[in-house]
Design a protein around this nucleic acid. Sequence first.
DNA 1: AGCGCTACCTAACCTATGTCAAGTAGATTT
DNA 2: AAATCTACTTGACATAGGTTAGGTAGCGCT
Lengths: 190, 190
Amino acid sequence: MYQQILDHLAAVISLTREEEQEFTGILSEKRLAKKEFLIKPGQSVNSEYYVVSGCMEAYYLSEAGDKHIIQFALEDWWISDFEAFFGSKEAQLYVEAVENSILLGIDRDNLETLYERIPKFERFFRIKTTNAFVALRSRILSSLQKNSKLRYMEFCENHPELERRIPNAHIANYLGIKPESLSRLRKELS
Amino acid sequence: MYQQILDHLAAVISLTREEEQEFTGILSEKRLAKKEFLIKPGQSVNSEYYVVSGCMEAYYLSEAGDKHIIQFALEDWWISDFEAFFGSKEAQLYVEAVENSILLGIDRDNLETLYERIPKFERFFRIKTTNAFVALRSRILSSLQKNSKLRYMEFCENHPELERRIPNAHIANYLGIKPESLSRLRKELS
DNA sequence: AGCGCTACCTAACCTATGTCAAGTAGATTT
DNA sequence: AAATCTACTTGACATAGGTTAGGTAGCGCT
C-alpha cells in the first residue's frame, strides 16, 4: 500500500525504516468513486492528498455558475484546496474524482509535528512546493505568450496521459477556452 | 541596512542574535540603476534577491521579440529567475530594474548550508514559497475566470503601489493584453 | 529654447474566440 | 430495442481584444 509514496519520497530525501514508519503512520487512506467529491466549498481543509491511483480535478465554480479547472492530479501527484489547506481557511474549490481513485491524506497538524521531529520532511515539502511553484510560473508564461492552439499542443506534449484520460471539455476548461474552440483547433491540427 | 530583512524574517520565524548574524553574513548587497539588468538569459543564476528598495521586473523575451512580464517586485518582495535558481539551469529571463534599486542576494550553496545548520530557515523559505505558490494559483484562476477589465481592476486593488509606480504598458503586458487595450478599458472605467 | 524621448490615448479595421443552436455517434439505462 | 446521456463536432453570427497608424503632452538633455 505505502511502497508507492515511499518511493516518491525516496526520490528527494532518504529515510530510515523508522522514519518511513513514522510517516506512513500519519497517512489516512481515502477511496472515491468517479464523480465523488473530496472537498467542497465551505468545508475546512485539514489535509493534502497524494494520489495512489485514479484521477482528480480541482475547480472553482463562480457565482454565475461557470466552472474553472485549475488542477488535475494523476498517480503520484498531490492535490487539495491548497489555499485553504495552507491558509487554514474554508475551501473555495471543489475537488472531485474524475475516475475511481485511491488517495493518501496527510493532516496538517500531524505534518507540522513531523516537521519538528524530522526536518527532512520539511525539506521534502519545501522542494515539492518549489517545483510546483516553478511549474505554475511556466503555466502563466505559457498563457501570456501562447495562443490556444499552442497551449493545447504544449498540454498534449507535457501531459499525454491526461490527454488520454480526461474528456476534451475538461481540457478546454483547464486551458481557458470553450469546448467548441478546442474542437475547432483539434480539427485544424489533424 | 539589514534591519528590514530581519523584520521580514521575524514575521515568520524567531531568531537569536547569533542566527540573525549568521544569516546577514551570507547576504550580498547589490545596487542597480534604472534599466540595469540583474539577470540576463544564458547566465547561471546562483542567487535569489530580496528587494530593499526600488522596483524590479522579470520578463521573458520570445524569439519573435515579444516581451512577457511574469513578475514585478517592490520593497520586501523576492525576485530571481526562480526556475534557473531552483533548477540550477541557465537563466531564461531578464530581470531588470524599473527604478534605481537596492537588493540583497543570497547564494544557493550558502543557503543550503544554512538550512542544514538551522532548519528554521528551511521553514521560512518553505512558507514563503508556499505563499507564492498559492498566489500564483489565484493569478491563474483570475486569468481563467476574468476578462481583462476585471483583471485590471483586481490588479489595481491588490497592488495599488505597483499601479502608481509602473508604466501602464508594463501592467498591460503583465496582464496579457496590449497597451492600447488597457488604454481603452481605462477610458471605460473613468 | 529646441529636440527627441517616453507614456499615453484614439480610431479604423481585422481576427480569434465566444455564443447559440443543432446534429451525430457511442455508451448506458430501462 | 428504445430511450437517454455524454462526448464531441459543426456552422452562423457576435464581440473582445489585437493590429496598425497617428496624435498629444510632458520630461530630460544639449
